[in-house]
Design a protein around this nucleic acid. Structure first.
Lengths: 355, 355
DNA sequence: TTGAAAGCGCTAACAT
DNA sequence: ATGTTAGCGCTTTCAA
């Protein structure tokens, strides 16, 4: 800005030296509007075959590329979407982002990252999201029921899709059938003969936490295994949380469990650590199964049996849905995705014989 | 676009209903140019105190926010930078991105994600990067010596900074002192009395791989431990690679090592898995130390002793440096970052007594 | 100290 | 089938 004079030429070849529509048009001996019509591939407009090829040729020769900024200004659209993430060092978010990037790219949009502090007092989040007149829409991911971020998204004045969760007052969201995923996990344990099955839960308010807890209880109920609250502890979604909750269960349980279903991969990793620190063997003494798959599931010992979830696809579908919203092709996105499959690894085995 | 008529009003409040500079100016009874001057906070221009406050007030009342697209078109700048990443489910990239996002945000830029297939035949990468007239500059991260991506970056016509590596023909890069990091790791093992120290290396061409391998050899040489090639295997940067390489060393070693230095966190995780599968105990029989810290280092059992690297800062500095380049404040960015500290956890202990 | 006016590159009526 | 024209919202000379 200040060194504007320097900016000309060498430093910005892409921005200054790039051929404009005007260049193409004049070189091809036509008006810019004509050039625009053919270069945009507008079907409704008819253009002479010879002029069309002439324009196309010059465009290729000049390596013409439409300036998206100009197009944006004209269209009052940025052709980019933002994704708000609370943390990146979490495999779930990484996969969501990869999917969203793919979706955006397929539709000609860019994906812009906005890191949102998970802390409740991140007032700045509002400003950053709301003032974002850089995006046509927002993908919102939160782990907890972060009403600050959600509130900010609503005030941002652009359409948004909530990912990985749903909630009341939220029109558009894509989320997993957590109940079903939990059921698959717990039924797997039941099929191995387990009856004392612990659960490390999320906070019990967000939809995923509630759903998986409900799925856990449903699966037990179906086979008449009584629910024992001493087998449940709140872990949240972190490794440390999982370890702490596992220790709590091990200490508080009226009778020790032979299996545990931590709510998510990170919590399961922590749980395995805690279990092994007690000298308890996985899976001989205690089976572990969880929801979500990722590199870490194969990395730890024993590798974890998990219920795979279409996380990357959720990101992809989220981007697609959001862009549909933006372009007015849809008015509401509400989709519950089903789990993929149970991946059997080394962390589950038959229940030990009854004492 | 097609449903343009629908776009007016309800669907796009942020884009259509947002106050423009014109709105502010007319409401304040001044010309847009005057409004622009004060709203931009231009120091050099003097504006009457009363008009200034009047403009500021109306702007606040109207919740005015400059339209960045218009500003971009005018300035021939996008005020955003892109980051090209080969994979996201890798703690190193996650941290780089978080740092880069913070840096970009601090300077008023947006960060845009471009996923670049690591595959050598990803010709599309060229097109995607080169045609990106959505960004003023590029942050390039590659694991391997991916000349395709590098070539694409060079042709993209915008300044770029290579992260995590350097290479000949690359003007701007920020990378770690891998040699030093490796030395710290190996010296730690030596100080514990280890003499037979294995190394799982990256490919031996990229700078990080070479640097760490050299650091390993240097540290050995300093204390006159002879180099034994049977203690070295190529692992690359993945969990599976680490496990395979560890198995190779265990089988090919003329005499078993008492310690191992895998080149990076992921490889170390794989190595620990492989070691434990052989019934060898960590750290009693075999110590493990690596470079890079991350959640997974604490998550596995035993938790890994690692040399912490300022990865997030590398992302931050990369963004800062790139923006300096873009704005003409710098003409060259070349920075080698030093390791932070050795974090002692449970994976290293004194060398077992000599057989 | 403030205003007038041109123009960034593109699109889309509206002419011809 | 092609050209003319009027902006999108902003910044920045140049005048007054």
């Amino acid at each position: 800005m200040q060194k504007k004079s320097l900016d000309t030429g060498s430093l910005f070849p892409a921005l200054t030296a790039r051929a404009t529509l005007n260049d193409v048009a004049s070189q091809a001996g036509v008006d810019v509007s004509t050039a625009s019509r053919v270069l945009r591939g507008d079907q409704k407009q008819r253009v002479g075959e010879e002029t069309r090829t002439r324009i196309l040729d010059t465009a290729k020769k000049l390596n013409y590329r439409a300036n998206i900024t100009a197009r944006s200004l004209r269209a009052a659209k940025t052709f980019s979407i933002g994704i708000a993430v609370p943390q990146l060092d979490n495999p779930v978010f990484s996969q969501i982002i990869m999917g969203a990037e793919r979706g955006a790219r397929e539709r000609g949009y860019s994906l812009l990252i906005a890191h949102i502090g998970e802390g409740s007092s991140d007032d700045d989040a509002y400003e950053r999201l709301a003032s974002t007149n850089r995006v046509d829409g927002l993908l919102i991911t939160t782990l907890d029921d972060n009403s600050v971020v959600l509130h900010a998204a609503k005030k941002a004045g652009v359409p948004f899709v909530l990912l990985n969760r749903t909630g009341q007052g939220v029109d558009n969201s894509i989320y997993f059938d957590s109940n079903q995923a939990a059921k698959i996990a717990v039924q797997h344990l039941i099929s191995l003969g387990h009856t004392r099955i612990a659960h490390l839960s999320g906070q019990l308010n967000p939809s995923t936490g509630i759903g998986r807890f409900a799925g856990y209880r449903d699966a037990l109920e179906e086979v008449n295994i009584p629910f024992d609250p001493s087998l449940v502890a709140v872990s949240g979604y972190t490794i440390k949380g999982g370890a702490d909750a596992m220790r709590a269960v091990l200490q508080q349980a009226k009778e020790l469990p032979s299996a545990v279903f931590p709510i998510t991969l990170s919590a399961a990793v922590g749980a395995v650590m805690a279990i092994q620190q007690y000298g308890i063997r996985v899976p001989e003494d205690l089976s572990v199964v969880t929801v979500h798959d990722g590199p870490i599931a194969e990395a730890i010992f024993p590798p974890l049996t998990t219920v795979q979830m279409p996380v990357e696809k959720m990101g992809f579908d989220g981007a697609m849905g959001l862009i549909d919203l933006i372009e007015g092709r849809q008015t509401k996105i509400n989709c519950m995705m089903q789990p993929l499959q149970l991946v059997l690894r080394g962390s589950t085995s038959k229940a030990p014989h009854r004492r």
